[in-house]
């Protein structure tokens, strides 16, 4: 029953907030962006608001957190009170502070991983589409073979081989995810490579790097940006799941996935605290999905709902 009340209250609060946020954006942004901001659906405004909040918290974590990230400041599993707003964890560290630092660690690592996957995947994909021939065939068949294995299973296999640390985590997930990015970048770029202006640039004698950077990338960017949001969600969920399994971000770094795992016993006693980091993960993914939905809708030019 309490959950239903909470859900209704959450929706009731977020609707006027998103509305006000949209109105403020439409007022404050320069004219050309203000129109897009003013006409976006409430869900997208909500998404932007949440993402903005997360970025703010991640940037200013040391100023916002009442206690240090790793310090033991109380006894174990203290309930919520005025000094420790969300109580303490199983070692006596402040939950709220760790939740705030978690925004920096979890989201930061997921973002770095996605960016790396995109850099490698899209460059290779565009390169393959541009060169064609045996290089394209070889790379694509290799990627096909890697994609025949479910990504979480493949990541677990690679983590066994290279051991678990933040650096290997980023590299492994980025490598596995780059295969997915490669496919999309390649198929988008294939549509661009056959254009006359690419042919013209080629005949001018421009190099491969110039062709990728100046001719293809600007024309393939829109679908790749929407894909970035979706892939970020996948990477973020994968990293959280791995951390939850104890194989991702390692203690004592504050991280939402491992916070859930460490304090999960509290749930069976009816305490909701361990659900908060998991909820923080879910909220960000929902928010990014909302924004991506809006962007896809705008990019596809679909004004009529099917």
């Amino acid at each position: 029953m309490g959950v239903v009340v909470f859900l209704i209250a959450f929706v009731a609060v977020s609707i006027p907030l998103s509305w006000a946020f949209r109105a403020a954006l439409a007022r404050l942004l320069p004219r050309d962006m203000a129109y897009a901001a003013g006409t976006m659906p409430l869900t997208a405004a909500f998404g932007l608001m949440v993402v903005g909040l997360y970025v703010f918290v991640a940037l200013f974590a040391p100023l916002l957190a009442p206690f240090p990230e790793r310090a033991v400041v109380g006894s174990q599993f203290q309930p919520w009170d005025s000094t420790h707003w969300l109580g303490t964890d199983r070692l006596g560290r402040d939950m709220l502070s760790r939740l705030i630092y978690g925004a920096r660690n979890t989201v930061g690592i997921a973002f770095a991983t996605t960016a790396l996957a995109f850099l490698v995947g899209s460059l290779l994909g565009i390169w393959a589409a541009l060169r064609g021939g045996w290089l394209d065939q070889g790379l694509s068949r290799f990627v096909d073979a890697l994609m025949a294995i479910p990504s979480l299973i493949f990541s677990l296999l690679l983590l066994t081989i290279f051991g678990t640390s933040v650096l290997t985590l980023i590299l492994v997930i980025a490598a596995v995810d780059a295969t997915r990015v490669y496919r999309i970048a390649r198929s988008v770029a294939q549509g661009v490579v056959v254009m006359d202006y690419v042919e013209a640039a080629r005949l001018r004698g421009e190099g491969t790097w110039y062709l990728i950077r100046r001719e293809i990338l600007p024309n393939a960017l829109a679908p790749l940006v929407a894909e970035f949001g979706l892939r970020f969600c996948f990477v973020f969920l994968t990293i959280s799941s791995l951390s939850f399994l104890g194989l991702g971000i390692q203690p004592p770094t504050a991280d939402w996935g491992s916070m859930v795992r460490d304090n999960a016993t509290l749930i069976t006693f009816g305490d909701v605290t361990p659900l908060l980091p998991a909820g923080a993960i879910a909220l960000l993914t929902v928010a990014v999905n909302f924004i991506v939905d809006w962007q896809l809708y705008r990019a596809s030019g679909l004004k009529e709902r099917i």
């Binding site: 799941s241 939850f244 998991a278 993914t285």
Partner: peptide, 15 residues
């Protein structure tokens, strides 16, 4: 779709 599996699992345990 956006929820991590363990979040759903713990919500169900909680409920």
């Amino acid at each position: 779709i956006s929820f991590p599996e363990f979040f759903l699992a713990y919500i169900l345990i909680f409920l």
